[in-house]
Computed example of a mutant assay.
Amino acid sequence: MADTTTRPHCSVKPRTVRLLPSELPANRLELIRVLASKWVNGTVLHYFLTEGPEPQHQAVRDAFSEWKNLPIGLEFVEVTDRSESEVRVGFDQADGSWSYVGRDILGIGTTETTMNFGWDLTDDYGHTTALHEIGHTLGLPHEHQNPFAGIVWDEEKVYGYFGGAPNNWSRDQTFQNVLRKIDAGEVEGSNWDPNSVMEYWFPAGLIVQPAQYHGGLIPAGGLSATDKDWVKRFYPALPNVLPKLEPFQTRTLSLKPGEQADFRLEPSASRTYQIGTFGTADSVLVLFEDVNGELRYVAGDDDSGQQRNTSISAKLFQGRNYVVRVRIYWTGGSGQAAIMYW
């Protein structure tokens, strides 16, 4: 493999900071922050490819397929109308490679891209780049910023390296993408994976500790075993048939933090319905309509960190099929919650 340590690196976009009440218990704050960027499993992410060479387009399609085929519960569908997309992929060669993280893309206007590729994606490094940027869209941060990695940097050498060609980053950009450690409360688990697809390539001399990486860190490339295990644990493949949620019937949700319950709705009358959770848990609730076998987003609500429950009001139509998904952040004092629609 060619020396990839001299190649440019991904520059992730700044995260949207969720303001939370300071009086919340530490464990509740931690769970909300860990899960805030993640999608409800089963979400269909529609992606739009802006103008660019067809080989680059195909490389992005292949990377989406590789994530999907692990298999995971998220769906990825290419669309030809950017207004129908959540993910908008650019190929501006002067803008580097970058992506927003997770659900932050929902706050980006439809005229703007949410991911860009600034170099060729048809070689091994490019393939890993495509997987890496999609990883950000799934909610993954840079692996070397894991506070449990134990990395000690020669900071001035880091600033010097990334400040020069081909990255030409400012000191702030280098700090945000390399040196800044993610808050321990935002990280799942405590292990660092130096072969993660979310890890950078580093030349010799930048890492002081661990000592074995003083001569450089060059990941294997592609998805590591830990990457695959993580994404399949957080976005597991979903069953084809979901239990039916009947109107006015409460269903108990005995879920651990990060777990999810999924139900199908088959309304017997066309009218406005209320869908809501009950209890003290923090959760995100999302409603989809099944349109010719593809789930389309209808409405959603997130009550995390607030003294209320999730609630959706939407007109549902007789003869149409819907899916409602609820993911738990924090289980509350009772360890249980409930869902009903009426």
Rank of each mutant, 00 (worst) to 15 (best):
T5Q: 04
T5N: 06
P8M: 07
S11C: 10
V12F: 00
V12S: 08
K13I: 14
T16G: 06
N27C: 08
R28V: 15
E30T: 08
V34S: 08
L35R: 04
A36Y: 00
K38H: 14
K38Q: 13
F48A: 03
F48C: 11
G52D: 05
P53C: 13
E54G: 05
H57V: 10
A59E: 08
R61E: 15
D62Q: 12
S65R: 15
K68W: 15
N69I: 11
P71T: 12
G73E: 14
G73N: 10
S85C: 14
E86R: 04
V87L: 00
V89A: 12
V89P: 08
F91W: 04
D92V: 05
Q93W: 12
A94K: 13
D95L: 11
S99A: 02
Y100N: 07
R103Q: 06
G107L: 05
T111C: 12
T114S: 06
F117N: 08
G118W: 10
G118P: 05
D123R: 05
Y125L: 06
T129H: 10
L131R: 06
H132P: 09
E133M: 12
I134Y: 11
I134R: 08
I134G: 07
L138V: 02
Q145D: 11
F148I: 04
A149C: 05
G150T: 07
I151F: 06
E155S: 05
F162G: 00
F162Y: 07
W169E: 13
S170Y: 04
S170A: 01
V178S: 02
L179R: 01
G185T: 07
G185C: 01
G185A: 08
V187W: 11
E188C: 01
G189D: 14
N191I: 10
N195M: 06
E199M: 12
Y200V: 04
F202T: 11
G205K: 03
L206W: 10
L206S: 09
V208S: 10
H214S: 15
G216W: 12
L217D: 08
A220T: 02
S224E: 02
D227N: 02
D229R: 10
W230S: 03
P236T: 02
P239F: 01
L242I: 01
K244S: 07
L245P: 08
T250G: 00
T250F: 02
K256D: 01
S268M: 09
S268P: 03
A269D: 02
I275L: 07
G276K: 10
G276L: 09
T277G: 03
G279H: 07
T280E: 14
D282M: 00
D282I: 00
V284F: 00
V291D: 03
N292Q: 13
G293T: 01
Y297V: 04
V298F: 04
A299N: 03
D303A: 02
S304N: 08
R308A: 08
A314D: 09
F317N: 06
F317V: 14
G319W: 14
Y322L: 09
I328P: 05
I328T: 13
W330C: 11
W330M: 09
Q336T: 15
Q336S: 15
Y341P: 10
W342G: 15
